[in-house]
Write a protein that binds this DNA or RNA. Structure first.
Length: 138
DNA sequence: GCCAACGTTGGC
DNA sequence: GCCAACGTTGGC
């Protein structure tokens, strides 16, 4: 089992929309490093859903339901998409400020590499976010 | 192969 | 709204 974090601007695709839809296709990634992380995702992996820019907080957790396939939104075989479904919401969204301050979270790729939109998390980082966020099943 | 110019992301 | 970081493009 691997753990990940993906970013979305809530104005483009929000956590609430994700929950309402009950699923999402994660497409549109146009960065090789992020793409490589998408390709490494396996069915069952858990993914923190982070709202960037206007909110800057982790809102919940998704789970991979379909491993990578060609991104249908572009005619270019380099780019891929995965599918996921919402599994936990965070009662207490974990803010970027909190992540920066927390001893166990301050080393995450989210801080070190602020422009990367798909990144791995260690099990410890993932569990810490679940704990701080007071995760509840959907 | 280098690097300047430029575009995008995302925090502040 | 600004700007730092950084990825990409294209001229040489």
């Amino acid at each position: 089992m691997n753990y990940w974090l993906v970013k979305s601007e809530p104005e483009a695709f929000s956590w609430d929309q994700f929950v309402q839809d009950g699923k999402a296709m994660w497409d549109g990634v146009r960065n090789y490093q992020a793409r490589n992380h998408l390709k490494a995702m396996r069915t069952g992996d858990l993914v923190m859903f982070y709202h960037s820019v206007s909110e800057k907080a982790v809102r919940g957790v998704g789970q991979i339901t379909r491993e990578f396939y060609p991104d249908p939104t572009v005619n270019d075989e380099r780019w891929v998409a995965v599918d996921l479904k919402p599994v936990y919401r965070l009662k207490n969204p974990v803010s970027l400020a909190t992540i920066k301050q927390d001893e166990r979270l301050s080393g995450t790729a989210l801080i070190r590499q602020s422009r990367l939109s798909v990144m791995p998390l260690t099990p410890d980082e993932f569990n810490r976010m679940l704990e701080l966020g007071e995760a509840v099943e959907l």
